[in-house]
């Protein structure tokens, strides 16, 4: 498996990366661009990293078919678990401003002719240690999830999450985990 990894990906001992298409959209020019700790299992991930993107994953993380859309920085702690089809993104993909978005649509089109895209908002995402993220949850740009938190399945995380929170709903609402134990 390791011979298929891009050269700017560092992987720790005992870590397994499964799946054929993990790096189809891996365009980061950093070295290293992606650092993964030891004893992680990452199955059928989608590492869509832009030219300036950097990403770190700690030790003992278990991630099943996650999607990472990264233009700046996504940091994931140790012992983070993600259920199927979790999406983590640190970017808006396109400008919010209607005029700039028109420019972006042209730049993305087959008629672009090499013109460059306008600047697009991004903000780093940080996920602390021991965070559990249920299946089909979405973590949006600029959020920081405190350690030990529990993100319920299908939750949309739009704001910072204090350590030790249970987060549920869309938009995600936080309650101290101690109320549920």
């Amino acid at each position: 498996m390791s011979k298929q990894l891009p050269q700017n990906v560092l992987v720790g001992e005992g870590t397994r990366i499964q799946g054929q298409n993990c790096f189809n959209r891996f365009f980061s020019e950093h070295s290293p661009a992606l650092t993964i700790g030891s004893n992680c299992m990452i199955a059928n991930a989608h590492f869509a990293l832009g030219a300036k993107a950097q990403m770190q994953v700690g030790d003992e993380c278990l991630l099943s078919s996650p999607m990472f859309l990264c233009e700046e920085r996504i940091s994931i702690g140790s012992r983070v678990v993600m259920g199927w089809n979790v999406a983590v993104m640190d970017t808006d993909f396109h400008p919010l401003d209607p005029d700039l978005r028109k420019t972006d649509a042209i730049a993305c089109s087959p008629l672009a002719g090499g013109i460059s895209r306008p600047a697009i908002d991004s903000a780093p995402v940080t996920i602390g240690d021991d965070v559990w993220i249920g299946p089909q949850a979405t973590i949006l740009k600029g959020t920081s999830i405190g350690s030990g938190s529990f993100i319920e399945p299908g939750t949309m995380v739009t704001q910072d999450v204090p350590a030790g929170s249970r987060v549920s709903g869309n938009p995600g609402r936080c309650t101290p985990l101690s109320e549920f134990q």
Binding site: R79, V81, W132, F150, G164, R166, L177, F180
Partner: peptide, 8 residues
């Protein structure tokens, strides 16, 4: 998965 961090 339990809510308790250490159990997880």
């Amino acid at each position: 998965a339990p809510y308790d961090r250490n159990a997880r």
